[in-house]
Design a protein around this nucleic acid. Structure first.
Lengths: 227, 227
DNA sequence: TGCCCCAGGTTGACACCGTCAACCTGACGA
DNA sequence: TCGTCAGGTTGACGGTGTCAACCTGGGGCA
């Protein structure tokens, strides 16, 4: 372990940054929140354990700070999604969300496990809500954008959090599964927003209606669509 | 703390049971997995700490055993769902799942957070898959039942796990939200299973198609359906 | 009847954890 | 030149999971 040169007054923030990086790395390697030790963080930073308390009130606040960075990264990804068609764009946002979660599984896990009430998280939700609002404006979705966003969020979060938490499960191809959930949630929201809580016709008649509607939804006619 | 009478040979299983009950209670009260202490479990059972190791190899195995019981309870609830219409029954199964999760939030959290590969969990999935299969047989859903079940599972799990993990969030009415997610997932699966990965028509045309289809889906005609 | 065995525990200890009070140290302003 | 104070370090405390060693009393067997 290399000798650390003591920081000059005013430069203490540098150590804070190094600690954050070390914690981020350890969290990714260790896997779970409690596997991340203050002692390990301090050792990796090349500093004594209580030094962490110079910059973070306790372990929880350190983890909170790590999470904050993750929210920013997630927002960055969602913001970078582009597509001329609003409904397609909403789908891409969902896939971007899933991509982030699966790329940083541990961070995502920690992120969603603790009650979060910070501006960065709020911003993420607002980005999704804005994409939904565009779909409402285009007429493809109807109803309250916030409510619809919650539904989509639930579906995608459920998808990735299961993939992360149950790696031993015989999942299908990950991209396929994410795609399925994103499309199902989107199409389902479109239908639900028009049906709402109305009692549904029996299954037999539903089948006919779906068959007819989906012939129109598919943009090009496939000759072998049943399987 | 009352004196414990020592168990006779062969009666050791009784203590195992008492420990499980104590752990279950503490988990529900404490909230999180790491708040559940072996010392607390032992104290509540009226026994010394290392006695727990007579019946469970370590803390993890104790928690595993607690989880196993929860899976059984979940299966019991799903099994008790009845409805003549298969699509309606599927929805009720989803609501039963959510009801369990929200009634035992801590157990559910622990349950889903750890990789589970036990028969009880498998049985729960199979029950859901059977309900889906009935819908496929009735024609209201199409495609591979296992895949569809995964999608529904993801949606409902996401819904309840967000409700549990983010109690501070300004959620709408819980029952309403669960209902929304269940219906959205069901309707979405029906549409997705017919559209699959086909490229979709633009949002404008989608809106018209959905409007037309959903007029048929609603069993009775409302005169004020827009809002 | 008396002996011993062993299931069913208990005692005491270990290493590790988060946390904190007390202490050190070197650069900088007066 | 000297005090001050930001930026650390040392050593300790209580709590945790875990384990080796020990106790103990009821039942099988002579």
């Amino acid at each position: 372990m290399a000798k650390r040169v003591r920081a000059n007054p005013g430069e203490g923030v540098r150590l804070r940054e190094e600690i954050l990086v070390a914690a981020e790395g350890l969290l990714a390697e260790a896997g779970t929140e409690e596997a991340l030790t203050l002692r390990a963080v301090a050792a990796r930073t090349g500093v004594s354990t209580p030094s962490v308390y110079m910059h973070f009130a306790n372990k929880d606040e350190l983890i909170e700070a790590v999470c904050l960075r993750s929210w920013d990264e997630l927002a960055r990804r969602i913001r970078s999604v582009e597509d001329p068609d609003p409904f397609q764009r909403l789908g891409r946002c969902g896939r971007a969300y899933a991509g982030f979660a699966l790329e940083y599984p541990t961070q995502y896990r920690v992120l969603m496990m603790r009650p979060t009430d910070n501006p960065a998280a709020h911003a993420c939700f607002e980005l999704m809500a804005a994409a939904v609002r565009d779909c409402v404006d285009a007429g493809v979705l109807r109803g309250h954008p916030g409510r619809i966003t919650l539904g989509l969020w639930a579906a995608i979060h459920g998808c990735v959090s299961l993939l992360i938490a149950q790696p031993g499960f015989p999942w299908p191809d990950v991209d396929d599964f994410v795609d399925q959930v994103v499309r199902t949630a989107g199409l389902g929201s479109a239908v639900y927003s028009r049906v709402h809580k109305a009692p549904l016709v029996p299954s037999g008649k539903l089948a006919q209606t779906f068959d007819a509607a989906c012939r129109t939804i598919r943009s090009d006619v496939e000759h072998t669509s049943d399987q």
